[in-house]
């Protein structure tokens, strides 16, 4: 009991917290792009599940986690485009259409898994890639610089996204069509094209999130994401549509998950309560963000389809 407060255990727990945060971070970062452009995509979890299955299955068959990740990205791209068609071109009610995408992903990923794999087999995972020198630093090195490459890339995506959203023409167009699509249209910006791009980025990142989750665990099962895609949507709101806010929320979630996992493996949480314990990370994340969130305004045109002259 006392040894859970030892330095090694604490470092290991925090480090696993960072790993656990990554799928959520990718998914909610992607969702932030879509929402900034005015499109709420409730299908994230479905895209994650299909990305997870695709990533797992490819890795299982080819032994290459990188190929698995690529397939996850590809699935995300296709489903992102599909979501764009539904929300942007077909002007669907966004509060509902995404649920369809979710249910499709949930059912399809399980069906494919049952048909193609059946019994869970462990697949290869990403190699750790300690960063030379930095990973030698005591404590900090193990915590931050001893992960696999996708994890570094995910955290790198945060500052990159901040720059894209705030400092590029593309980012400005995303913000403009999310706030006032009529204005953007009247200035000659294609609302449709910008929203397609933003929603598809969201799909790609959700696919990547699923793949990273499944390949990281080396396993797939029905409803592997456990509704993380929905937590991701909540994180976007509480993270005030900013990459940094989204990252903070994901880290809280990852850390709490890691602690719960630790308590479970140590038997401190009895097995019978493990289902109950599974919701702790989500609950604490949402509570933390509710407390921390300053009142930022949602993009004005969020969930509103755009019709010219309407």
């Amino acid at each position: 009991m006392a040894d859970i407060f030892s330095a090694t255990v604490i470092v290991a727990t925090l480090s696993s917290g960072i790993r656990l945060a990554v799928p959520l971070l990718l998914a909610s970062l992607g969702e932030a792009f879509g929402q900034r452009s005015g499109v709420l995509n409730l299908g994230v979890d479905g895209i994650m599940l299909l990305g997870a299955f695709g990533g797992y299955f490819t890795t299982l068959k080819t032994q290459s986690p990188w190929l698995g990740l690529a397939v996850g990205l590809g699935i995300g791209l296709v489903l992102g485009l599909l979501s764009s068609v539904i929300s942007v071109s077909l002007l669907a009610e966004q509060g509902i259409s995404g649920i369809g995408v979710y249910l499709f992903g949930l059912g399809m990923s399980d069906l494919l898994f049952q048909k193609l794999v059946g019994t869970p087999l462990p697949a290869a995972s990403f190699q750790k890639a300690p960063i030379p020198l930095l990973s030698e630093i005591p404590v900090v090195g193990d915590l931050f610089f001893n992960h696999s490459i996708p994890i570094y890339l995910a955290f790198l995506a945060i500052p990159v996204s901040t720059v894209i959203i705030n400092r590029t023409r593309f980012g400005m167009n995303i913000r403009a069509v999310g706030e006032n699509p009529e204005a953007a249209d009247s200035q000659g910006i294609s609302v449709t094209r910008v929203r397609y791009a933003a929603v598809t980025i969201g799909g790609v990142l959700a696919g990547a999130a699923g793949a990273v989750l499944a390949i990281g665990l080396g396993i797939f099962q029905q409803n592997l994401t456990n509704a993380q895609g929905f937590i991701a949507i909540a994180l976007v709101y509480f993270g005030a549509w900013r990459p940094l806010g989204v990252m903070a929320g994901s880290l809280v979630y990852g850390m709490v998950s890691a602690v719960v996992l630790l308590l479970k493996t140590r038997g401190i949480i009895p097995l019978g309560a493990s289902d109950l314990a599974a919701m702790i990370p989500a609950v604490i994340t949402v509570l933390a963000l509710v407390v921390a969130a300053r009142r930022f305004r949602a993009p004005t045109a969020l969930t509103k389809p755009f019709i010219r002259g309407g």
Binding site: M172, R175, E179, A183, A184
Partner: peptide, 8 residues
């Protein structure tokens, strides 16, 4: 109705 984006 002004075609401006308030947050820009």
């Amino acid at each position: 109705h002004f075609m401006l984006v308030p947050s820009l």
